[in-house]
Nucleic acid binder design. Structure first.
Length: 129
DNA sequence: GGAGTGACGGATG
DNA sequence: ACATCCGCCACTC
């Protein structure tokens, strides 16, 4: 039996009571919801950090998305490569940027001059969700 | 409990 | 279109 969640089981605990949380914490922590929202992104489509945060119910927490993705394990099945910044460009420094680009093109996402046309690939489109 | 941080975003120059 | 600055939010030390 393989451990699909090496730490997944309770990987994201601690922060529950981080303090900033005033009333009760919601069913899921922010990090968890970001992962869930990310899992919904269909292949061949992309989302921006900001929109993903919003989809996760965390408007304005775009940076959180970045920090969260940063912590993702290498073997994660989440489509982290479908996340781009609001400019339609890859934010990842160097190491992963190339891999991300390759994966995107592999899914049919065309990068023009290193940029993706969000008007076409951004998910969800109005009325689509 | 407090300060620093970041795979961002939007406004400005 | 590009570079810079400031603001945001939750996480980490």
């Amino acid at each position: 039996m393989k451990v699909r969640n090496k730490s997944g089981n309770e990987n994201i605990k601690t922060s529950g009571t981080s303090g900033t949380r005033k009333i009760k914490d919601e069913p899921n922590d922010a990090t968890s919801r970001i992962c869930l929202a990310l899992a919904l992104v269909p292949m061949g489509r992309v989302v921006t950090y900001g929109s993903l945060a919003e989809l996760a119910g965390l408007p304005r927490a775009a940076r959180l998305v970045g920090q969260t993705l940063r912590k993702l394990p290498k073997d994660t099945r989440l489509p982290w490569h479908r996340v781009l910044n609001a400019q339609g460009k890859i934010s990842l420094p160097e190491p992963g940027a190339e891999r991300q680009k390759k994966r995107l093109e592999n899914e049919g996402v065309t990068l023009l001059n290193g940029k993706v046309d969000l008007g076409i690939y951004l998910w969800p489109k109005p009325g689509e969700l």
